[in-house]
Design a protein around this nucleic acid. Structure first.
Lengths: 243, 243
DNA sequence: ATTCATGTTTGATCTAAGTCAAAGCGCGTG
DNA sequence: CACGCGCTTTGACTTAGATCAAACATGAAT
């Protein structure tokens, strides 16, 4: 858990949710309740049911939201990348297990003051509404993937989405040789896609064998032809709404 | 498409999103852009990609949101019951196919004036944020169902959720002999659950055979023991967050 | 009453993905 | 360097649910 005012420049709440139209005194108020927390890959951030007295924005790294059934079956229900929002204003207890998938830094705000600020500052709420609606679209996109796609289409969809969000923060990866870090283990991918880790491994091997992807080490993914990968997702075209 | 000011009493936007703290002049503004539309069971409300110049609230009946792949595979990504909200402020084109599952009445507001009113009236935005966050929780609950549950658990989960929302608008159905209308065809259930209609039919037959549910006609469902049905959902207990 | 259309049930078979099991591969540590 | 630990790959086999196909209800229209 670090406290570094210099990091403000990368804090997405300030920049995306708040700053765009913030007055100085609002910034000051946010500043007063802001703190940073860091987690190592694999560490839990919070468990479902725990009291959660903060909301946060992902500064760097990747976090997962998941739901577990008591027999151990687990479904990832959200993947938080930098600038994504964590927590729910007005909710006292965490609804999901949150785990740091890679090394993770959160910019946290104590919940009560954040809620107070939100009620005073309409555009924070508006920004949050926008973000939530985007997340809802993502969730619905995932429902299609989970409910109707084959294992191969699921893997291709996940890689395409990660390529879009991870590799090119902004730029569309239609270029040849898109490269990006794969922050997920096979098990995490399986939990996201509603598959077993063996099936994930087999499908990735198949995509590799067919030249649709290459692996550099175990984490670096190279996509020689992004369009060819998209063709494997089952989506009509560029498809995926994914925020 | 009907225009009946008397219906205002049942319009959820007014009552849930707006009225609670509305000033009279805000009500007047909403009134001015409000209109009702009715659809028969099976009719499309709007297709994905169409321009959508209104937002709406379900007054009565059930509507589905779904996504289709071009080969015909379809996944329902939302089920809108009375009081649920349809449409996205700021979005010009529909993102999903919307179909009236049963006879349906919507209370519609022209989008632009609604957006304007929203920007002037913070608590409409707050209410919409609450509703969207609830929907996001529902969507995530469905991701668990789609990704990790067996066919039998899926059916039991759907019936449990419908029993909660449909039968008892408010009261929890822990009572014996919960009865409710099943507004969905086998195909619609299959599209919701990521199954085929044959599998849905077989599982319902099995639940019937085992006395966990009874069917009166083809649409009336009787749940003799709600807890016993819940035990089939795979959830820890009362489970389902579903809004 | 007969026909037709739409939805449902049930059966027989097939297959994609799960399960179980055993290596393999880095990689950090003693 | 060898050991062990976490992760991944691959293989052999099983199975839940899909697919294909054929009745079976129900109710509205003729």
């Amino acid at each position: 858990m670090t406290f570094d005012p210099k990091d403000c420049g990368t804090c997405p709440i300030r920049h995306r949710a708040v700053c765009a139209r913030c007055e100085n005194d609002e910034l000051e108020q946010l500043e007063a309740v802001k703190f940073y927390r860091s987690f190592e890959a694999g560490q839990p951030v919070i468990w479902s049911g725990d009291t959660m007295d903060f909301v946060a924005s992902v500064v760097s790294g990747v976090a997962s939201l998941s739901q577990a059934m008591e027999d151990g079956r687990t479904q990832m229900v959200g993947l938080l990348l930098p600038s994504d929002f964590l927590g729910r204003p007005g909710r006292e207890f965490a609804a999901y297990d949150v785990v740091a998938v890679s090394n993770l830094t959160l910019c946290c705000f104590r919940r009560k003051p954040f809620e107070k600020l939100m009620s005073q500052t309409p555009h924070i709420g508006h920004r949050l509404l926008e973000m939530t609606l985007d997340e809802l679209d993502s969730a619905r996109e995932w429902m299609l993937i989970l409910g109707r796609k084959t294992a191969r289409e699921k893997i291709a969809s996940l890689l395409a989405i990660l390529a879009r969000r991870e590799a090119s923060l902004g730029l569309r990866p239609q270029a040849k040789d898109t490269v990006f870090e794969l922050p997920l283990t096979r098990e995490a991918m399986a939990d996201y896609l509603g598959l077993t880790l063996e099936t994930v491994s087999r499908q990735i091997s198949a995509l590799k064998r067919e030249g649709l992807i290459q692996l550099e080490g175990k984490r670096q993914v190279i996509i020689p032809d992004y369009a060819a990968l998209l063709a494997q997702t089952g989506d009509d075209c560029d498809g995926a709404i994914m925020s």
